[in-house]
Design a protein around this nucleic acid. Sequence first.
DNA 1: TGTATGTTTGAGAGCGCTCTCAGAGGAGGA
DNA 2: TCCTCCTCTGAGAGCGCTCTCAAACATACA
Lengths: 335, 335
Amino acid sequence: MARTLDDLAELSGVSRATVSRVINGGAVSPETRQKVLDVLETTSYRPNLAARNLASGKSGVVGVVMHVAAQLTFSDNYFAGLLTGICDSLTESAAGMMLWLGNRTKEETLDQILSMGMLDGIIVTADTIDDPLVDGLRSSGVPSVLIGHRRADSDASYVDIDNEAAGEAIADHLIGLGRQRIGHITGRRDSVSSRDRKTGYRRALRRANLPTEGLIIEGDYTAEGGYKAATSLIEAKVDAIFCASDNTAAGALDAIRNAGLRVPDDVALAGFDDLAFASELAPPLTTMRQDIQGIGQEAARNLLTLLDRPEGGPRRVLLPTELVIRQSTVGGLSG
Amino acid sequence: MARTLDDLAELSGVSRATVSRVINGGAVSPETRQKVLDVLETTSYRPNLAARNLASGKSGVVGVVMHVAAQLTFSDNYFAGLLTGICDSLTESAAGMMLWLGNRTKEETLDQILSMGMLDGIIVTADTIDDPLVDGLRSSGVPSVLIGHRRADSDASYVDIDNEAAGEAIADHLIGLGRQRIGHITGRRDSVSSRDRKTGYRRALRRANLPTEGLIIEGDYTAEGGYKAATSLIEAKVDAIFCASDNTAAGALDAIRNAGLRVPDDVALAGFDDLAFASELAPPLTTMRQDIQGIGQEAARNLLTLLDRPEGGPRRVLLPTELVIRQSTVGGLSG
DNA sequence: TGTATGTTTGAGAGCGCTCTCAGAGGAGGA
DNA sequence: TCCTCCTCTGAGAGCGCTCTCAAACATACA
């Protein structure tokens, strides 16, 4: 059983260098190549990654960092979708992946990642306004792709959506419906996407000369937060609510119902994400679809390309979103 | 900036071997050790893992394999809990982790894992009766710890619960309540845990001389499966249902309600897992608590110990479960 | 003083691979 | 025929670390 390149070389009667060329695609004459391939075939040879890594300086492994509470990573479908997409692309390219969740402080996580010293590149979620982990990763020099980005990251490689435009589009939709008091439940306070969606919402309402005072309530992307925030918006006599996430909208829907109001007749309701359950709510939820899994895939592809051709400079991608109109804002729709 | 052991050696005026001893805990005189530690302090030295791996044959990275649909891995709290626990233990020991989900066929996954050739050990979920992935991993010789186990795995290292005893205990509870027609909704057909829980249920009912004919319906651990199965059990006039998972029970609860029956008055309902939502159902669900996160932690710890002392032989752990009685079986309970 | 025993250290041989460099051999032009 | 140019191949030098082995020195005992 051949175990090393030297074994293979001996078996095929060529040098180690030539076997290496065959495996890694160097210039080899057809006959020699075939000879080696034959031996390779009959020999369950597996290159030793550590040796390859040591010699080449590459490991074929990328790090994925989602520094949110571990429990959340898996229960919130947003992160689940992201990870699924990333896994997908990486598997396709036979790249390995190491995962870091929020089990430790950001400092510890950063330290651990850097001391691995073995990662070709890193994918990291960057939706927090002030994030030492992202800063540390970026300044470490390890090639990275961010999912989401702050202003400070505008010269980094990232995959994101245009949250401002999306927020504005949803608000415009509600405005177009003739609603006059349109409330907004934001996402987490320290979240970039939340802030941008709010900015978009504000811009739309200002342009339409509609009030926003007292109509913006802070949420946290969860259903519970949505319920609470919606309760105070109802007191403020809104006739529409734009929630920064579908989860939030699900909570808000409960609150509206419990207040004895009808959706959309009394209050039109819109979410963000278009998670699977959005279309199954009663009534089905108008929302901004983002292809979460696609974002994950793109991030991984992006990183792999970056590793392949570092000279290409930072790679920035904005993925499209799509307004999905359902009965929670437009009652008369069929389906 | 010192980058290699040789640099450090030069800086501290000793040999590379001595620096290595200080770092890895060999015998070094106090003065020499201090000298080296001082240099280490002022020098942001990070050992090169590839080199270390190559020289020592160890990588400090373990593989985690959960070959279920990726989407499921994250939406089902069972797997989420498992992963959280594993991450926890591994992080504690500063061990790296690589994750494989069900993005590819089992054969491809197996191949990819083995060709990594860099994993010190593997943690793999083994709840499927006939699983080439688990078989392949076990026969590969890479130290592994299974989560769950088949009969064929009785000589492997694993962490599991006693599903038979647990199933029997739940059934006994329902019997003790005086229920006469106790139905059972199983888990996935090819699942070991499902089969064992059913065996336990059967044993209890046989001992109590109660019928099981027509009262065992196949489910799949999901709420949808539970709804469907419960519907036919209701037609079979059961007065109690033991579901193989909480998710299943949630679906069954809907079905029972939709049939206009009351829980527990008409039909007592029990689940399995004690997921977070079990206590929030109306009525709160009687269920068998298993410490899912604890199982994950134990699996990781188990593997690390195994790697440390391979001579110890396989390490088998059965974690306890606990019957949690709530109003879905005993109506009069407070809370 | 000589011998046995123990402690601390350095030299150096790998681990298995990649990659450079130069040599061997063949083709083509003068 | 000789020289140049190109293609293919092998030798060998690392990559940074671990670990064995033996040397050097210290200590203890007879």
